[in-house]
C-alpha cells in the first residue's frame, strides 16, 4: 500500500527539489484529512508543491489569490440571476475543489478568512440557506506570508487550530539551488505530471490511516506532552485537546507513510513541530520551534514513575 504513497512522494520530489521532509509531511497531512498551512516568503515553491500534489493524487485543483477586498462570496460562490434562463444560477466559488490552494490567506479580511475556515471545518458550504457538501476528498493548502509584512490580517489563534500542520519550505540548499537554476522551470513539470493515485484510491488509503494502531503507552506519551505544554509555562497557552487529537492523527499518518501499522514515539516527535507550530506561542516571545524542542526534551518517552 505504502509503495503507491512512496511513488507519489518521489514523483513530487522530482518537481519540488530538496524538500523531501516537507513533502512527506504534506502527504501525511493529506492522509490524515488535515489542512495544511505553509508559511513562507513568496517564491519558495509553495504553489508548485500544491500543484504537484494535486496532479499526483489526481485531484481537482483550484488556486485563489487572497486580497484585502475579497468577500466571502468570492470564495464560496454566489447565486446570479441569469437573464437568459430567467433563473438564479449558483456559481460555485473556488472552494468547490478537491485541493484548494489559498494563497496569502492573511491578506484577506477576517470575515473572508472566516468563511474559508468554516468551510474547511464543516466540509460543506451553506449558500442561500442550502447546505452543499464539498467534494471528497477536500484539502486546503493555505499559504501565509510571515506576519512581519505590512497590510496583513494574521489569522486568529482559534482559526489557526483548523489547520492540522504548519510547515515552511525555506530557502533551498546550495546544491538544490544549482539544480534549480540549471534546469528548466519546474512549474511546467507540475502540469505535465501524470497521476500516481486516483482520488478513490487516496480515500482508501486515508481509511487505512485511521486504523493505524496507537498503543496505550503511546497515547500516554502524547497526553504527557500535552499536559507538560500546559503546566510548564513554556507557552502562553498550552495545547488544546483538539491539538492533541490532531497530533495523534498526524502521527498515525506519518507512521503510515513510513510503512508501519502502529505509531511509535518517533512519529509523534516528527510531527509535533508542524502540528503545534501555529497553535502555541512561546511565553518567552521567541520562536515556537525552540520551545517545542524544549517541550520534547522535557517529557520522557517512557513513563518513569
Amino acid at each position: 500500500m505504502s509503495t503507491t504513497i512512496g511513488r507519489a512522494i518521489s514523483a513530487v520530489s522530482s518537481v519540488v527539489l530538496g524538500k523531501d521532509e516537507q513533502i512527506r509531511l504534506a502527504v501525511a497531512c493529506m492522509l490524515a484529512r488535515g489542512h495544511l498551512l505553509i508559511e513562507d516568503l513568496p517564491g519558495m515553491g509553495k504553489t508548485t508543491l500544491a500543484h504537484a500534489l494535486a496532479r499526483v493524487f489526481s485531484l481537482d485543483y483550484r488556486r485563489v489569490q487572497f486580497t484585502s477586498d475579497m468577500l466571502p462570496a468570492d470564495i464560496l460562490g454566489v447565486s446570479i440571476y441569469d437573464p437568459d434562463t430567467r433563473q438564479f444560477q449558483l456559481r460555485q466559488g473556488p472552494v468547490f475543489a478537491q485541493l484548494l490552494l489559498a494563497d496569502e490567506v492573511n491578506r484577506a479580511t477576517p470575515k473572508t478568512q472566516g468563511a474559508l475556515l468554516e468551510a474547511m471545518e464543516e466540509r460543506q458550504v451553506t449558500l442561500d440557506g442550502v447546505s452543499r457538501p464539498l467534494p471528497e476528498p477536500f484539502f486546503v493548502i493555505a499559504t501565509q506570508n510571515p506576519v512581519t509584512q505590512a497590510g496583513t490580517f494574521p489569522l486568529p489563534e482559534s482559526q489557526l487550530d483548523r489547520f492540522l500542520m504548519r510547515i515552511s519550505l525555506g530557502y533551498p540548499s546550495a546544491e538544490t539551488e544549482l539544480a534549480l537554476l540549471s534546469g528548466s522551470d519546474r512549474r511546467d513539470h507540475a502540469s505535465t505530471m501524470k497521476p500516481e493515485i486516483s482520488s478513490a484510491e487516496l480515500m482508501q488509503q486515508m481509511e487505512l490511516v485511521g486504523k493505524v494502531h496507537a498503543s496505550a503507552d503511546l497515547i500516554d506519551y502524547v497526553q504527557r506532552l500535552l499536559a507538560h505544554s500546559r503546566d510548564s509555562g513554556l507557552f502562553v497557552v498550552g495545547l488544546s485537546p483538539r491539538a492533541g487529537l490532531g497530533l495523534l492523527r498526524a502521527a498515525r499518518a506519518w507512521a503510515f507513510v513510513a510503512g508501519r501499522d502502529y505509531v511509535t514515539p518517533e512519529d509523534v516527535q516528527v510531527v509535533l513541530g508542524p502540528v503545534t507550530a501555529h497553535r502555541i506561542q512561546a511565553s518567552t516571545g521567541g520562536a515556537s520551534a525552540t520551545s517545542t524542542q524544549q517541550l520534547l526534551e522535557a517529557v520522557p518517552v517512557v513513563r518513569r514513575s
Partner: peptide, 17 residues
Amino acid sequence: VAGDSLRLVDWKSYARG
C-alpha cells in the same frame, strides 16, 4: 477569474450580456 472580488465585478456589462 474565480476568486476575484464580487465588488469589482462590472455588473453593468454583465447585465448587457
